[in-house]
Design a protein around this nucleic acid. Structure first.
Length: 500
RNA sequence: GCUCCGAUAGUGUAGUCCGGCCAAUCAUAUUGCCCUCUCGAGGCAAUGACCGGGGUUCAAAUCCCCGUCGGAGCACCA
């Protein structure tokens, strides 16, 4: 029997068809992160799009750490796991994980083969000198060396007999190519600094991305490369390599840069790293950091990020991703299952500060629903005791009434609030506002951490019983993730603001 | 300077390859109304775009040319 699992979710496939997908047995793609730090939000596009294509085409996905630069973009040993973790949080799992720094011998073998094919030469020109020649379409003397000499000099590179800057292996392309970027590019160079991974610490001769990635893509049977526009010329460089080896170059899609609104911090691993190290950010998960860890801590689901990334498509133009798109998807995902609670904010910025008013004449407690659309989930119990706190801007002028949500209508007098047994209709017909409140005594101090700084306030008693990781909606404030529940030692709950 | 890429409402996107059904899709955003014991959700409505100029054609968002603007590469970074 055919299974009838048909998720009738008729998903309006947002991503464009993958070119050439029908011509291959299996769509094989790779994520090729540089593990030089934890991921920022822009990095999420790679797994979001590639992972979604994998699902769409029943394909295969490799995660290959392109960690071949022990110096300038030095790998961060914690980033390898942090990146895998981020991919999983986004809802994807690589079929295989490799590190380029484990594969040096493979690159060396291919370099030797390329040398024998006459496709590469060792070159000791200083960089600026070669650049000068190249820009004028002129070859250097090293270009005509015989394969024998090149072989032995390359072996000497591998053996670490040169210092950084003394010798490189160039791939012979077309020194007069009309695009200067493609002329005889460097395939291998010497680096004195040991790689941070112990297994790779002895190597001194390192391939550059165009060589390493080109070889690996072929060896791992990649059929589709999807990456940023900054690597546009890379495909053109690598085609020379593929031609020497008689390989077929994969389909390639280049997308533009992503920018985010709402953040002051640039979407750049090195910038964020500096701010974290200098202490300007509390860490990679600081709410002000445009990182995956930050959104995660705020309770934004990976799926919401993926949905928003997918909507960007794969166009080559630069795009501005609106955080509101992520928030909107997240709200869709969590609204139905998130419990409601009251938070009265203190401080001038929001609500004008918490103000206390005595309350008399009414019931002992308010009972607003846990979720307005799900009466079956029960009602909260919020005692009023001797008084309540409301936000100053919610306080009506003396003599006027206000509706304490889940409790009832009260009149503001010089003595505080006086309960008036009114019908809910007054909120509709007589302009009585409905406001949130908490008991003046039996409440839970709450810190709300936001992109714009911390806000302190008071939560209703039940807030204290939520565990770290759970979501709440503070009514009329927004959705938050409980980051730390109150303990015997610390009576305050810490929450992170997600969105309204 | 050389080479390459891109340009549809505030944002993202569909349509562009194979010109007409596009007085331009959908989402988000903003605003208003309805509904609701939240400023959430839901419903309805409004706002809002084919970068400019030429050309081809009966007909151009779509094809051609010239500009303009934006981006990328020209590294012994990825």
């Amino acid at each position: 029997m055919e299974e009838l699992d048909a998720d009738d979710e008729e998903e309006d496939q947002v991503l464009p068809d993958l070119p050439g997908a029908e011509d291959v047995d299996q769509v094989r793609m790779r994520l090729a992160p540089n593990p030089n730090g934890p991921w920022h939000l822009g990095n999420a596009r790679m797994p979001a799009v590639i992972g979604t294509y994998k699902e769409l085409y029943d394909g295969w996905m490799l995660c290959r750490f392109d960690d071949t630069d022990p110096e300038t973009k030095r790998p961060d040993l914690d980033a390898y796991d942090a990146i895998i973790d981020a991919i999983e949080y986004l809802g994807f799992a690589p079929d295989e994980i490799v590190r380029a720094s484990d594969r040096l011998e493979i690159y060396y073998d291919h370099a030797r083969e390329l040398i024998d094919l006459g496709g590469a030469y060792t070159c000791s020109c200083p960089a600026d000198q070669f650049s000068d020649l190249k820009n004028h379409g002129k070859a250097c003397d090293h270009r005509d060396k015989d394969a024998e000499t090149v072989r032995s000099e390359f072996d000497a590179m591998v053996d670490g007999e040169y210092d950084a800057g003394e010798m490189v292996l160039r791939v012979k392309t077309d020194i007069e190519h009309k695009n200067p970027a493609l002329r005889d590019w460097v395939g291998f160079r010497m680096i004195d600094t040991p790689h941070p991974r112990e297994a790779a610490a002895e190597y001194r001769c390192w391939p550059l991305l165009d060589f390493q990635s080109g070889v690996d893509d072929h060896l791992t049977g990649i059929t589709h490369i999807i990456r940023g526009i900054d690597l546009q010329d890379s495909a053109k460089k690598q085609r020379f390599l593929y031609e020497y080896f008689g390989w077929e170059y994969p389909e390639v899609i280049h997308w533009g840069h992503v920018q985010l609104d709402e953040y002051d911090v640039a979407l750049s691993t090195s910038t964020i790293k500096e701010l974290v190290e200098s202490g300007e950010l509390d860490g990679w998960d600081d709410p002000r950091a445009p990182t995956i860890a930050s959104l995660r801590r705020r309770g934004i689901r990976g799926e919401a990020i993926v949905d928003a990334m997918i909507e960007l498509g794969t166009s080559a133009s630069n795009v501005d991703l609106a955080m509101s798109a992520i928030y909107s998807h997240n709200r869709d995902l969590i609204d139905d299952e998130t419990d409601r609670a009251f938070l009265v904010r203190d401080g001038d910025e929001h609500g004008g500060g918490a103000v206390e008013r005595a309350l008399r004449g009414g019931p002992d407690a308010g009972h607003p629903p846990v979720h307005p659309e799900h009466e079956d989930r029960g009602r909260r119990e919020i005692p009023v005791e001797d008084g309540v706190l409301v936000e100053a801007t919610d306080l009506p002028p003396e003599g006027e009434r206000v509706w304490l949500k889940g409790y009832g209508c009260v009149r503001h007098t010089s003595d505080g609030f006086e309960y008036v047994g009114a019908d809910l209709d007054v909120t509709r017909e007589e302009d009585v506002d409905i406001v949130h409140w908490v008991p003046a005594a039996d409440n839970v101090p709450v810190r709300l951490r936001t992109m714009d700084g911390d806000v302190d306030g008071y939560g209703e008693p039940g807030v204290g019983s939520y565990d770290a990781g759970e979501m709440l909606q503070f009514e009329r404030v927004g959705f938050v993730r409980v980051d730390a529940a109150p303990t015997d030692a610390v009576e305050r709950a810490v929450t992170y603001y997600a969105h309204n």
